[in-house]
Design a binder for these strands. Structure first.
Lengths: 120, 120
DNA sequence: CCAATACTTGGCTAAATTGCCAAATATGCA
DNA sequence: TGCATATTTGGCAATTTAGCCAAGTATTGG
């Protein structure tokens, strides 16, 4: 069972958002809001990876990769697991696929004109 | 029918992400990644609102509110509709409720320890 | 123990973000 | 027309972000 269920189940009837819940949700969104971090999330959806694998995938400096991963970790999106010389990262929540389908509906609406937007 | 369907339907079996799709998804996430903009999205989920209503809700300068709305608009999340003296904003995509349920599963995992995270 | 590999942290710069104020634009009413 | 209200835009200061390099820590192999 995916952790998010589907939009018609009980999860959706959530408590009203509060300033605090919005602040925390914004923090998660902000952590995801970078192309390189989305790349890592995509990759980790297929299984755990060590930092050097992700470094090669992204083609960035190891320190940059490490900082991106710490952003994801602090947001609760991934966890790390040090085994010997390597640190392996994995996703905490498998729900992100449905999540991205939702974003893509904003990007590529199936129905009606999108209206004008810039720079997306 | 919600625009996003549920995680088990065809929407989820999407084309593999590309650098471009990640860039665009990141842009949507970034637009949502602010507490005030989440407040507006919550409010607009109940129906259209004019800028001055949102201004009062947020307690911010009108110019600040206008800029937040333009961020949401440029990301394709809301549209505006000028009627007389007022500009009304409304959500483009009703899928955001399920979307937030997914974020909340990261924030409040139902199963297992969350591991350490900071500053969320 | 020493060197190599894996990773993180600190520091720097350039760029982006957020909030406000002030000014410009648009609409409606008298 | 002329003023008030609604909204957007420009500009500024403070803060944050993203990338790199350099330096520090940890683990393995010889």
């Amino acid at each position: 069972m995916p952790c998010c269920g589907n939009p018609t189940d009980a999860k959706v009837a959530q408590a009203p958002a509060t300033p605090e819940s919005r602040r925390r949700r914004a923090a998660v969104l902000k952590a995801l809001a970078h192309p390189v971090r989305l790349l890592f999330v995509d990759e980790l959806a297929a299984g755990e990876r060590c930092v050097c694998e992700l470094r090669e995938l992204a083609g960035l400096d190891m320190s940059t990769v490490s900082k991106h991963l710490s952003v994801l970790k602090n947001a609760g999106i991934v966890r790390d697991d040090k085994r010997g010389q390597w640190v392996y990262y994995h996703l905490c929540c498998p729900c992100l696929t449905g999540f991205f389908a939702c974003i893509d509906d904003i990007l590529f609406p199936a129905r009606g004109p999108a209206g004008k937007r810039t720079g997306l």
